[in-house]
Amino acid sequence: MDVNITVFLVLAPLAAWMYPVYVPPNSTAYIHADLPPALCNVTGTLQIDKPTTVACVNTALQPAPLRGSLSVEYPTPPPQPPPPAPEAPIVAVAAGAAAAAGLSHLASNRRELLAAPVVAIAARVKRAVAEDPARREILNVVEKMGAATLSQIAKATGRGWGAVQWHLYVLEREGRVRSVRIGPFTYYYVNPRAAAEVILSSVDPETLSPEDREKLDLMASSL
């Protein structure tokens, strides 16, 4: 069973959005999260063996938009590609005035949230069939575009976000594509030099952080 959501939230000051993930006894679940790391305690792909809460906390004194996607996979029976995510995003506005005290406590314990028992699952993922037509199509799109976000790939292939996210996850674990986070976006690519050129042409270099600039410089200098 797979659960897929597209998230668009406007978090009020000192507000939080939380999504509890249930794990059956003696089982595991995979969380695939494309959420802002500055706000949320889970990004990337994680494996859990006990109930966990995906939490995004706005500790700033002004509203903060939260965009991204989240899917939860229960790999019993063996994992299958999830169905396409709903086209319409989930829209919510969280008011935090009444819950400021409790949310402040939650924000102060973000390190405990980040320390939730999660283990990398690369060793547990079976290598997918190389000639899978959906993954071959996605790989061709990524190679042709040089660097592309999840939404750009979904639009180019006409596939749902959830399905594209799953196939990208498998391709990345196989080492056939790579990803890099620049600003609020995660880009997927095959050739790092070509990807650096595409990303630099699509952003204002003056807005790049030193960390992001260093990532792109390393990619541009790759052989």
Results as ranks from 00 to 15, higher is better:
205 P>V: 03
40 C>T: 01
223 L>S: 15
54 V>T: 01
68 G>R: 04
170 V>S: 08
159 R>C: 04
1 M>E: 12
122 A>Q: 13
216 L>E: 13
71 S>G: 09
150 L>G: 09
152 Q>S: 11
197 E>F: 05
93 V>Q: 08
189 Y>V: 06
17 W>Y: 15
29 A>S: 06
124 R>S: 11
31 I>P: 03
5 I>M: 10
28 T>F: 13
190 V>T: 11
100 A>Q: 11
102 G>T: 07
43 T>R: 08
198 V>S: 04
118 V>S: 08
123 A>K: 14
170 V>Y: 00
223 L>K: 15
82 P>W: 01
29 A>I: 04
213 R>C: 07
147 A>N: 04
182 I>A: 01
10 V>Q: 15
10 V>N: 15
211 E>W: 14
18 M>I: 13
222 S>F: 15
199 I>A: 04
19 Y>E: 11
16 A>N: 04
41 N>Y: 03
124 R>G: 15
27 S>G: 13
30 Y>Q: 09
99 A>N: 13
60 A>Y: 10
183 G>R: 00
39 L>M: 06
168 L>M: 10
16 A>M: 07
3 V>L: 14
124 R>A: 10
143 E>D: 12
107 A>D: 05
151 S>K: 11
20 P>Q: 03
159 R>H: 09
114 L>Q: 08
180 V>Q: 08
5 I>T: 10
126 K>R: 14
50 K>A: 07
11 L>T: 03
165 Q>N: 11
129 V>E: 14
186 T>Q: 05
152 Q>D: 12
83 P>A: 11
65 P>H: 03
171 L>G: 00
195 A>C: 10
125 V>A: 12
132 D>Y: 02
62 Q>N: 10
97 A>E: 11
218 L>W: 14
36 P>L: 08
17 W>L: 13
